[in-house]
């Protein structure tokens, strides 16, 4: 429902204005701090940004982090969806695995990361495994909720008409899970890149997290902000170019 007074500003304008407002707050805060060592103004970031872009450092580390995020995201979503589906559909499996889920949900990310590095070594595998293990329990919990809410009548229909497993998955199960998958993906990608940064901070020699570690030791706030903001921009692009269009596509039948 839309109230007539809201008609003046479109949702897109509001998004842009809201981001500009945040920028304005930053400018004011920087002016009040009056110490570029502590909080540089957004305009002061342009020069270091151009420099990192020109020497290739930014793109290299950005790429490394993106690859790790994609791996962890794909693994966590794939395994989490499978696990959540099985747990939501079978009460017996759920009773057995639920305690594990609770334990892993409450295991601090840092503990998992440290253990993975200790057990597997300071390798790429350990880094991705740590992030994946951190995220699987959340995905599982969300998907299990979705699996429990599925319509048993449609299941009965598919069984009677002997639809193949693939068809059932593609046309009955996944469409019902779609809103839950989008919810898990959205919160998933946000959490995953934060954990990836910690993993890089602690034990990798490339990636945004590694660079932030480096400039943290040099107390270079401007560089820390340049790297952090670059990745936030990538995440915003993913949200606008991938997640939202996909969401619109799977919700098309509701709006029709």
């Amino acid at each position: 429902m839309r109230i007539s007074t809201e008609r003046a500003t479109s949702p897109r304008t509001v998004t842009v204005l809201s981001i500009l407002l945040l920028g304005a707050l930053w400018v004011v805060a920087a002016a009040l701090t009056a110490d570029p060592q502590v909080l540089p103004s957004p305009f002061a970031l342009a020069a270091p940004f151009r420099q990192e872009l020109a020497n290739g450092e930014l793109l290299y580390h950005l790429g490394q982090t993106v690859v790790r995020v994609l791996w962890a995201f794909a693994l966590a979503m794939g395994l989490g969806i499978a696990l959540g589906l099985v747990m939501g559909r079978s009460e017996a499996v759920n009773r057995w695995l639920d305690p594990w889920l609770v334990i892993f949900l409450n295991l601090p990310a840092l503990v998992l990361i440290v253990l993975c590095y200790l057990w597997i070594g300071l390798t790429e595998t350990a880094a991705i495994a740590a992030v994946t293990l951190n995220k699987i329990p959340n995905v599982t919990t969300v998907i299990r909720e979705g699996a429990r809410a599925m319509d048993p009548q449609l299941d009965a229909m598919a069984r009677i008409y002997r639809m193949s497993w693939r068809r059932r998955m593609a046309h009955i199960v996944l469409p019902q899970l779609a809103p839950f998958i989008t919810a898990a993906a959205r919160s998933g990608i946000a959490v995953i890149w934060k954990i990836v940064l910690v993993v890089e901070f602690l034990g990798r020699s490339s990636g945004i997290g590694f660079q932030i570690h480096l400039y943290f030791q040099l107390f270079d706030v401007a560089m820390v902000l340049v790297y952090a903001l670059s990745f936030i921009c990538v995440m915003l692009l993913v949200e606008w170019l991938v997640l939202q269009p996909w969401e619109r596509r799977v919700r098309r039948w509701r709006q029709a």
């Binding site: 449609l154 229909m157 009677i160 008409y161 002997r162 639809m163 046309h171 469409p175």
Partner: peptide, 26 residues
Amino acid sequence: ERMAVVFQEPTLLPWRSVLQNLTLVH
């Protein structure tokens, strides 16, 4: 083995087109 059921409720796939509701099942 081969059964067909017309349920009390239509029990269609709301996210697939009318045509696909036939072709996916048959």
